[in-house]
Design a protein around this nucleic acid. Structure first.
Lengths: 377, 377
DNA sequence: TTGTAGGCGTTATCAC
DNA sequence: GTGATAACGCCTACAA
């Protein structure tokens, strides 16, 4: 009488029915049972560079496939202390203005074997409430495109939570940041406009608590002063389309005339300003008035606008943020290294809404086109 | 001699130093030790509706605060089988076209105590690779704004994973879906244009594998046939700006003349078509040609365009998706109920790029303005 | 290479 | 109301 050894398929089907009856999940024990090995052998089969024999691996993988087994990330993270989840904090405002940002971040983080857990902030003041949620989820690190205070940063340090700020800075603390040099962008824009003969400048500012818009304005004002030009008239804006038109009217009324050039804190405002000037006030842009924006959003490139603007190299910045964060996570066992700051340059897009002198000097050309990362200590 | 009972603060500080020395995380045991209660008592303090005395709660919470204790969601999910994480699968294309979608979804899901784990698909064909990742993370459910096959759906059922399709459908299987009635939208658009006397129609189609664009085209063609009008000339497009211009030229060449009306599969193409007509071909829109799009993206509302289009009620649809998914999750212990399909109507935006007859009939007005959910069994 | 045993941090089930 | 004890599903020495 021969002893019949049941084949893996048969055992798997029977065992799977059992699991279904008990309403449990499929675990590595189940796979081990079906494959006829120990649970730890199964565990090793799902890890990189563990020592398993060819034969065992094959048996285990077959059993796993038959049972629809997938390792449980929650259980794994409990012991490895790695969830492979990265939190992205993003103010809804930024979300809408930079639709590419989230997509690029997700791709780049995904390419590094992690996933993005999304935390959107309806208002930038909701940070506290959201952060306490972040801690629960045991994320490996955080990319924050939102306004954090020095106290928040301190809590990240206390909890040893890797952090990268995106387009934000905190003066009081040393933090990893990825930014575009918005101040330099503001300076560059003024330089080009001034070189073409513009003298009376108006500025439509962005949302008040936005570091980005503030830096742009600061750079522009600074450069105007250096060039000995009169200070610009600044009117407030909300970074949206209606603010462009409202800002234009406000500037004309404050200055008693149409300015030579208007610098808008964002492309959407610039487009609002442009539409108002052309369609409502009958102002000839760029002959009577130059208009410029920031960000090079998709519509700025459309035929109806062809806006003079400055582009942030978003894909590169997203890649830098993912890279930086993952580097910090990987070495987070060791002592914390000194924070890294990666600064990118904006790229000047000439467009056709501003009168500009052609650029020949090597310095201006390179500073306008440069977008490689520059480390500033 | 009096026995000195050390106060909570002192114990906490000492114990915290110990934890730091051992490089461990703070656990509920640590809190229990400092608070002088059992670990289970601590656990109960962090649950809804568990029975704990006022005094214990206070002591525990104080100790927790001193130790910076936060419950570990990974450990919790291991036993509760709830991760409070929802996966959102989104094709990058859709991401860029509907920036509001992700923000709305995140808000709505957040309001229900869960968070969004983001899975972006560079190509719609990457679904398989991404799904196997989804299973690992033990998410509570999935909202998919990407193309799934019947086989994929089957795997969701096999794994008993709650699923809601967003703006997608799968003919072969019964699935929970939240959609906009794009076919009806296409019909509505043709009805209005035909009523204003347009007869020779051109269509610039969207990306070939997009259900949405196909449904829109189908509805338009269907309605044209019903009205006894000649079938439209259809040219392909990629749903982007350049496709609008290319499509316009292709239509003119195919028809041997400028058509009466062009229906574009998306607003961005409509805008590309419009810019080309006006700025490059000198065609008077809407006098010589009517142009219409779909989606009511932000720029469609700008002065330069004021596009005739149809809006999807995104916020309502996102809310419906979150609501539906969470309902399925909450009752997922019981037997699976019959799938739910929530269909919304697009809202007609008259704009100024198409010649239209004013609408007086109550039927037309209500069908054009309706955006409340309609359950279809 | 393989199996045994202990632990990761929580919730659930019971007695008390 | 409170505290012991057993899961949850996996990884990781360590011994074989």
């Amino acid at each position: 009488m021969t002893k019949i050894k049941p084949c893996v398929e048969t055992t798997a089907i029977a065992h799977k029915a059992l699991i279904a009856r008990e309403a449990r999940r499929v675990t590595s024990y189940d796979v081990a049972l079906v494959a006829g090995v120990s649970q730890s052998a199964v565990s090793r089969c799902f890890q990189q560079g563990a020592s398993v024999s060819e034969a065992t691996l094959a048996r285990v993988m077959k059993a796993a496939a038959l049972l629809d087994y997938i390792p449980n990330a929650a259980a794994r993270s409990l012991i490895t202390r790695r969830s492979n989840i990265v939190a992205v904090l993003i103010a809804s405002q930024a979300n809408l203005h930079y639709p590419e940002l989230l997509g690029e971040l997700s791709q780049q983080i995904g390419a590094r074997g992690k996933r993005v857990l999304l935390f959107t902030l309806p208002r930038e003041t909701d940070v506290d409430r959201v952060l306490s949620e972040v801690w629960q989820y045991q994320v490996d690190g955080v990319i924050a495109a939102a306004r954090l205070t020095a106290d928040h940063i301190a809590e990240f340090e206390r909890r040893q939570m890797p952090l990268v700020l995106f387009n934000r800075t905190v003066r009081e603390r040393a933090v990893n940041t990825v930014t575009c040099d918005h101040r330099e962008a503001g300076r560059m824009l003024v330089s080009r406009l001034a070189a073409a003969g513009h003298r009376r400048f108006g500025i439509i500012a962005g949302i008040e608590d936005s570091t980005v818009a503030n830096e742009r304005r600061r750079g522009a004002c600074e450069r105007l002063a250096e060039l000995g030009l009169p200070p610009p008239v600044v009117v407030p804006g909300q970074s949206d389309y209606p603010s462009g038109a409202a800002g234009l009217r406000a500037l004309i009324s404050a200055m008693g005339a149409v300015p030579d050039a208007i610098i808008c804190g964002s492309d959407v405002m610039a487009i609002g300003c442009l539409d108002c000037a052309r369609h409502e006030l009958g102002i000839d842009v760029p002959r009577q008035l130059s208009v410029a924006g920031f960000d090079a959003v998709e519509p700025s490139n459309w035929l109806s606008y062809n806006l003079t603007t400055l582009r942030q190299p978003m894909p590169k910045m997203a890649m830098a943020a993912a890279e930086l964060l993952c580097a910090v996570i990987d070495r987070s066992d060791n002592a914390a290294a000194t924070p890294d700051r990666r600064v990118f340059s904006a790229q000047f897009i000439e467009g056709a809404t501003a009168r500009l002198e052609p650029v020949f000097s090597a310095v201006a050309a390179s500073s306008a086109g440069l977008s490689a990362p520059v480390a500033i200590m």
